[in-house]
Design a protein around this nucleic acid. Structure first.
Lengths: 227, 227
DNA sequence: TGTCGGTATATTGTCGACAATTATCAGGAG
DNA sequence: CTCCTGATAATTGTCGACAATATACCGACA
């Protein structure tokens, strides 16, 4: 995934939407910062019309929040909301794994296993310097979701939630348990290869709960550091 | 729920959004029908600006689909997509029930039980003529979701999915198993009252799977009738 | 007669300007 | 010095008009 093949979005509003979305997710637009329509319009050399449309779509993704007659700000992110998202992910991705176990083709499963073995290689060669910072982790989850073949699940997770997750990662600096996560990923793929949807869901939910627990720990540490 | 207390939406775009959403969900705008911007703008006596914004939000709810330079149509709904939604609901509402079991207050649980006993009374007095057509069913699910106290869950289900569900119900004429559904509802509330989140999730998922199976059956019947 | 190409129409996308609302700040009263 | 008040400025919401694209229609040609 990462930077997609730079699809030629036909309309200005789409282009500007993708661009701002990227800037928010990558942290170039700081959380909580105001989004001034005239300013951005000048900066991008466009009119306020398409820009407003783009902001509307960003609001639908929960990447910006908007108050009538006041304006839009980049979403700023309480730790509570982050933990809420993990609950949603647990439910949704658990279901995705269950469906993927019956919907994925043998080739797709093989590809997925290949991705993980690549990950393992990377980790063993450069331990610590996890590729997980490079969001290879999300690559895995992304593929599972795609494998569910459930278009609504795909849309919810890939178009909305994962962008939020990436944003939160940048903000909270959540680098997560590379080795352990990889092992859990491998178990999930094994269950899918066995066509065991029940097991795949259980393992995925366990995995996300563990990730959530890790986030809770990190957040508590950060709170302690401040104090 | 039903028709809300006619909140005074401050902005035209919000008002028009709520209005069109309602018309789509209630079937006054037929699925698949084209949404002509100039026409609607004249009909509502507004400009195309706010209307376009409203259409954008409707697209985010999946109530309309839009193609660039072509226009927007009211979403038309394959049975496959309907079944996909049930999978999403199973995952999300299962989690909601689990969370509600620990997050709901005793009063809220009592209120919920009261709602159900009212439902039971209605059913016994007028069997067959289910209040379920009147969407009392969604009232129950609505409250469970609210009870989860997870704002993202609430937003996903109450602002997006439930509108789609109502729309699909109108289109497919899915009137579902009043008595059996009520019993399942009661079991779910019992589990929540016991503060047994695990059980509440299992029961909710079972309930939605049963509803889905019912939908599958009805769709098959309709297909048979046509042939 | 059926298909292809071109023109005409209508619709969507975009723009700049105006109106309405809110935030800012200066000034004065307590 | 603080707090309230009122005018000012800036931003958002809305509008109508223009440009770009797609659809529909019609005639010419195979």
């Amino acid at each position: 995934m990462a930077t997609s093949p730079e699809e030629t979005h036909v309309t200005i509003s789409e282009r500007i939407f993708a661009r701002i979305q990227q800037e928010i997710v990558e942290g170039k637009m700081k959380p909580g910062s105001k989004i001034s329509e005239p300013e951005l319009a000048r900066a991008y050399g466009i009119s306020r019309g398409p820009l407003r449309e783009a902001i509307g779509r960003l609001e639908a993704c929960s990447l910006v929040v908007r108050k009538a007659n006041v304006g839009a700000r980049v979403v700023s992110l309480s730790s509570e909301q982050l933990l809420e998202i993990y609950h949603v992910r647990e439910a949704l991705e658990g279901m995705a794994a269950r469906l993927a176990a019956t919907a994925m083709s043998d080739e797709e499963i093989a590809d997925l296993a290949g991705l993980l073995s690549g990950h393992r290689q990377q980790i063993e060669e450069a331990p610590g310097l996890g590729y997980f910072q490079k969001e290879g982790d999300l690559d895995f989850h992304y593929r599972i979701v795609q494998g569910s073949k459930n278009s609504r699940l795909i849309e919810l997770l890939c178009n909305d939630l994962y962008h939020l997750v990436r944003l939160y990662r940048h903000q909270f600096g959540l680098v997560s348990r590379a080795q352990r996560a990889l092992v859990e990923h491998e178990h999930i793929v094994a269950a899918i290869a066995d066509r065991d949807g029940e097991m795949a869901e259980l393992l995925m939910r366990h995995h996300i709960r563990a990730t959530r627990a890790n986030a809770v720990r990190r957040i508590a540490e950060q709170a302690a550091e401040v104090a």
